[in-house]
Write a protein that binds this DNA or RNA. Structure first.
Lengths: 211, 211
DNA sequence: TACTGTATGTGAACTTTTTAACAATTGATT
DNA sequence: AATCAATTGTTAAAAAGTTCACATACAGTA
């Protein structure tokens, strides 16, 4: 069985979920799990899980199942979780501040190392141990390198400008919370967290169910 | 629960994005738009957009394009945005507090009407105009009815219990921020906002691009 | 060692989603 | 009024994703 160079998009989207569940299982001391059990746990089908795991090289043992540790490590490796990552935050408003204080980054080796904002109301404030700096210092700060990802948590109207600024300063990965689809050059990776969009999907389902 | 006219799942996922863009366009005074233009704006293909819009009844005019107002209204109707919605928040931690203060709910007719927590540190505190109540009062509060959606923003270990409590109290729609896939009966709608999952997808892409 | 039950790996069928192509319709122009 | 250009609605093909079915290989047992 050949390991495919690029994983199907659908599998990639499920990878974090697998990782999460496998970490939980390991923590609980479960040493092995079958596609059947995992399927039930995650609300997928056993077949799908086997297909997925097979797409990055069979890690299972016939008649036995999957070794949780091994599988978790394999997925962590695919995700590139082997090392520590540095993030900066741009926009220390409500969401930005919540992200700084969010506890679960560290478990994955993710660290917010600096925060920037334009508003005098937050600049120089200490939020969860990080002193917010004026946006003017951003480019200089990034010049030193060593930052892997920028979190865009600014208001929608300035999100694109912020992205441009970051990209010009050498950032190639954006985690975007603004309800805008950023235009970026091909070498820049973006993932969006459009929370309201998901809420609207919920509304749609509620609405559809009533009929 | 019977589905009214079941749109393809892929279309449903794009509906909020369409709505967002059409609102923007209307606000800017744009009266018409072609699938071509919208495609460029949203990073989709024109063909896909025409397919999507066609799946809920052609709203366009050949040789002309789509009327932005009309299209926006049609999509808002599909999403069930005609009326006001009441939400309650369970878990007034970092994320919960940020959500209370989040400005863009009101634009869509969404209103957080109450917040609950267990911690004495936040209970009775006024956050963004809402006084957090102890979780014990939740069931009584819901007995009055009139709440459409519950936001689950509690720590992962208690998320399932919280969901159970809400469902027992009659809630049928959960907007879940805990990194857990909630087990719910079929009549309950859930959408997850697994933020870290999306960050891991970003990591994967960065990692994959390096190869 | 041989046997049995279990659960994977895998090819194929099936479904959903996306892309492509083009005829049909309409607004604008002369 | 007739023609042209633009852009949809629609059908067909391709690609991606999911489910099914089962031979195969392994763990556990005696």
């Amino acid at each position: 069985m050949q390991i495919k160079k690029s994983l199907p998009e659908a599998v990639v989207r499920r990878l974090p979920g697998y990782h999460r569940y496998l970490c939980d299982l390991c923590r609980l001391g479960t040493r092995r799990i079958s596609s059947q059990e995992l399927a039930k746990l995650m609300g997928l089908t056993a077949s799908q899980i086997r297909q997925d795991f097979n797409s990055f090289g069979g890690v299972g043992q016939q008649g036995y199942g999957y070794n949780t540790d091994e599988l978790r490590d394999r997925i962590a490796e695919l995700l590139g979780l082997g090392r520590s990552f540095s993030l900066i935050l741009v926009g220390a408003g409500n969401i930005g501040q919540a992200l700084i204080k969010y506890a679960h980054f560290a478990e994955l080796g993710l660290h917010i190392v600096a925060a920037f904002d334009t508003s005098p109301r937050v600049v120089e404030q200490n939020i969860g141990g990080i002193v917010v700096k004026p946006i003017e210092e951003l480019t200089a700060h990034l010049a030193h390198g060593g930052v892997d990802i920028a979190i865009v948590a600014v208001p929608a109207p300035v999100a694109q400008d912020t992205a441009n600024l970051l990209i010009d300063a050498g950032i190639t990965a954006l985690w975007n919370f603004a309800p805008v689809d950023l235009q970026v050059p091909p070498h820049v990776h973006v993932v969006n967290v459009h929370m309201l969009d998901s809420l609207l999907v919920l509304l749609f389902r509620m609405n559809a169910a009533e009929k």
